[in-house]
Every structure is written in structure tokens, then in C-alpha cells.
């Protein structure tokens, strides 16, 4: 299905492009939010990514999976904006978005909020593989391709990320 849709986008069919956007924008935005920790930067990253997809679709090789290509552009864009905005203080949307977690019960709410905060506190090189794996469900080989890293480096960063998150969540549970 994607092949036909992508072919239509190659022909600059705007309806097809909207269909493609609606299909992939949701998770792209979530990923950008989790990486940048800012609603404004995430919004910019998603917009730039889809504009680039539209104009550079000819560079995507038909038959290859589309999502790793899309996410490579997205992650590069997030990193570029983070680098560019490093001297600017943005409102930390991790604390804003924590309020969006439904209060099904207070204990449940706090646990997820703290874990989300802990993910945001991970250093960028560890946070990005964690987000790609646990938010989007990419395989380690796909993450390696997106980030242009050796798969063993990805495994090591995921391992370190999990250890840090476990430590954070255990500490928070003990503190209750």
C-alpha cells in the first residue's frame, strides 16, 4: 500500500501526501516530543521533516521500508534544532505533558510521570535509541540504520538507558 502511496507522492499528488502525513505524523510528533522535550521544537521538527519528505521523495529507494528513512530525517532534524536552540531556554514540555497523563489513580499517575521525566533526563545519545525502541517499536538493526551507528553501539546505549531508568524508578518507588 505504501508503495502506491509513495509513488503518488513522487508525482506531487497533495492528497496522497496528506494521506501519508496522516498515517505517519502522529508517531513522528510523539517521537519528536520525546526527543526534544519541547512542544515548539517538536512541532518545527515534524514540519521540516515532512517538507523534506515531499521535496526529497525521489531519493527514497522504492521497495525499502519507508519508516527508517522518515525517522532518519526526523531524528536529524530534532538534533539540529536542539543544537541550534541550545542557547535558548524553552519551556520544558515534559513537565507540561506530565499533566496530560490521566489520573486513573494517583499512584499509577506518579509512576508513569516520573518514568517519563527520567527518560527526558537521559543524555541525548541514550534517550534517542530508547525513544525509537520503546515508543515506536523499532528493532535494534533499524535504530542502527536510522542513527548510522553500529548495532552493538545501539545495544550498549539501550542497555545503559534501561539501567538508568530502572535505577530512577526504583529510587522513586522507595521514596514513597
Amino acid at each position: 500500500m505504501d508503495d502506491i502511496l509513495l509513488q503518488r507522492v513522487r508525482n506531487k499528488d497533495k492528497e496522497a501526501f496528506e494521506e501519508l502525513y496522516n498515517k505517519y505524523a502522529g508517531f513522528a510528533a510523539r517521537t519528536a516530543l520525546a526527543i526534544t522535550r519541547s512542544n515548539a521544537l517538536a512541532s518545527d521538527a515534524v514540519q521540516e521533516t515532512f517538507v523534506r519528505v515531499y521535496f526529497n521523495i525521489d531519493k527514497f529507494k522504492p521497495g525499502n521500508p519507508f519508516e527508517p528513512w522518515l525517522y532518519r530525517i526526523l531524528v536529524n532534524e530534532c538534533m539540529r534544532l536542539l543544537k541550534r536552540g541550545s542557547r535558548i531556554t524553552y519551556v520544558d514540555s515534559y513537565s507540561e505533558s506530565g499533566l496530560e497523563i490521566p489520573h486513573e489513580d494517583d499512584h499509577y499517575f506518579e509512576e508513569y510521570e516520573e518514568l517519563y521525566q527520567a527518560i527526558g533526563d537521559l543524555e541525548e545519545k541514550i534517550r534517542i535509541p530508547i525513544v525509537l525502541k520503546y515508543l515506536k517499536g523499532f528493532r535494534e538493526t533499524e535504530i542502527a540504520e536510522i542513527l548510522k551507528l553500529n548495532v552493538n553501539t545501539v545495544k550498549s546505549r539501550l542497555y545503559k538507558g534501561r539501567q538508568k531508568l530502572k535505577k530512577a524508578i526504583t529510587g522513586s518507588l522507595k521514596g514513597r
Binding site: A34, G98, L115
Partner: peptide, 19 residues
């Protein structure tokens, strides 16, 4: 599973709003 849910819950509303 908890990590996945934290990421889903933490980003759901903002992502929906910006679409």
C-alpha cells in the same frame, strides 16, 4: 512495557493537538 506506556501517555495529547 512501563517505559512504552510512559512514552505513549507522556506524548499523546501534545502530539494530537499539533497534528
Amino acid at each position: 512495557k512501563m517505559v512504552t506506556e510512559a512514552l505513549h501517555k507522556g506524548t499523546h495529547k501534545a502530539a494530537e493537538e499539533m497534528q
